[in-house]
Design a protein around this nucleic acid. Structure first.
Lengths: 242, 242
DNA sequence: GAGTGGTCTAGACCACCCG
DNA sequence: GGGTGGTCTAGACCACTCG
């Protein structure tokens, strides 16, 4: 009787790893069609069902999008359905229009220890700090302060952001090839400081949600850190629990 | 050539429906072992793979828990791993002990229109209102106000809650057979009113998270509505985005 | 019609758990 | 050793999309 293998790893997991590697290497770019399941099965020398199970998991993690009758596509932030995929703020009553960003400033500074730790860089490394406002139907609802490691976003300027007319993540994906796959948010209630109060047009001291988001790309590498102050008088942060 | 069927529903979805019905009917109770995949395959006259796919989805929705080598169990709120399954508040730094509930009051009142709407009952129907405090390491962090439709929780009293030494959902499951499967939370930032300020030991006006939760059982029937005021000085509401 | 993902089956073998 | 879920395969057929 053979001893059980202590480092057992299912075939489909190994295939999944290979697929992720190809995605990360840019063999298939965001929005593109990847090879069919049967094609990949031949390529890796496994059955089609095994490839299917690997792709199933990638689809569950939103790295890839299946479309019956058409094929499997690399997920992208540049399409209607994925716009504001990570935005959890929604109006309480009727539907609103899509939010619109106004970029206020882009600065280049040195990371403080908190930012450096969460971006997994050295405290002396330089980062871009982006400030922007998100408006729904013209009403400012979110003030964002976004830290981006300068090394991965060479050439970022306020002008380029302002001339882009879609989402930030779509821009970062198109301009720098950085794909946001996953994020962790930690939420607190705070009182508005003068800076936030002015932008969001509320009294100093008004209660705001403070949402800190750490975004990751492949291999869970952090590539963005942001702090958002959310006005929640007529909007709410929505979350589903299972 | 046969025309495509417009009301096509995969076999495994139909099996899934039958399994949910059996769960809802109490054929298998929380914590119990359900029949093996092969057994169910015989019972429903389908292949084992089809049953597997149905159970896979139930497991993904946390209605059921798979344990390799042992079998598949009906999910329950009365086990260590599922305790505080829906609680998203966690300490910022080091680990804390498990939270402890103190029940302050149970009242029987008529639902107002807001509560009635979210519980899908008539405004004149009576509901229990439970007030409690959640403490981490003895420090009060959450004040909860919980509405429960009286018709489904006959005989609920403050004494019974106080003598129960596990989670509320575990109690409601054991005492009334009501299983919380899914919930939707909407989160706002508010200023502490005197009542909350006193319990949470903060100044009036201090910023708090206001978390409103609507919990559902089978068939998405709402069976609980709660409002929690969360103190977020050393704790945060955590959320993952994909 | 040709190609893709989606379903369903049947059978083999593996890893895990328990008595 | 016997039972359970977990993996892997091969093949058939279906639903959907597009040219």
């Amino acid at each position: 009787m053979p001893p059980p293998n202590p480092t057992f790893s299912p075939l489909y997991q190994q295939i999944k790893g290979l697929l992720i590697q190809s995605l990360q290497d840019g063999e298939w770019k965001p929005g593109e069609l990847i090879p069919s399941e049967t094609e990949l099965a031949v390529r890796y020398g496994v059955s089609q069902g095994t490839v299917r199970k690997a792709i199933d998991e990638l689809a569950a993690e939103n790295l890839v999008v299946r479309k019956q009758g058409r094929g499997t596509f690399v997920a992208t932030h540049n399409e209607a359905k994925a716009e504001y995929r990570f935005l959890r703020l929604a109006a309480d009553d009727v539907n609103t229009g899509k939010p619109k960003s106004s970029y206020l400033a882009v600065d280049r500074v040195r990371a403080n220890s908190h930012v450096a730790k969460l971006l997994d860089i050295k405290p002396s490394d330089s980062v871009f700090v982006v400030k922007r406002v998100l408006r729904f139907d013209g009403v400012p609802q979110i003030l964002d302060e976004i830290w981006l490691p300068a090394s991965q976003y060479k050439g970022l300027t306020l002008e380029r952001l302002q001339s882009w007319n879609s989402t930030l993540y779509g821009f970062l994906e198109s301009a720098f090839g950085v794909r946001m796959l996953r994020a962790i948010e930690t939420i607190k209630a705070v009182s508005a400081e003068p800076e936030q109060a002015e932008v969001l047009q509320v009294p100093v001291g008004a209660p705001l949600l403070l949402v800190e988001r750490q975004s990751m790309t492949y291999a869970d590498q952090p590539v963005e850190l942001r702090r958002g102050w959310y006005l929640t008088d007529r909007f709410s942060y929505k979350n589903e629990l299972y």
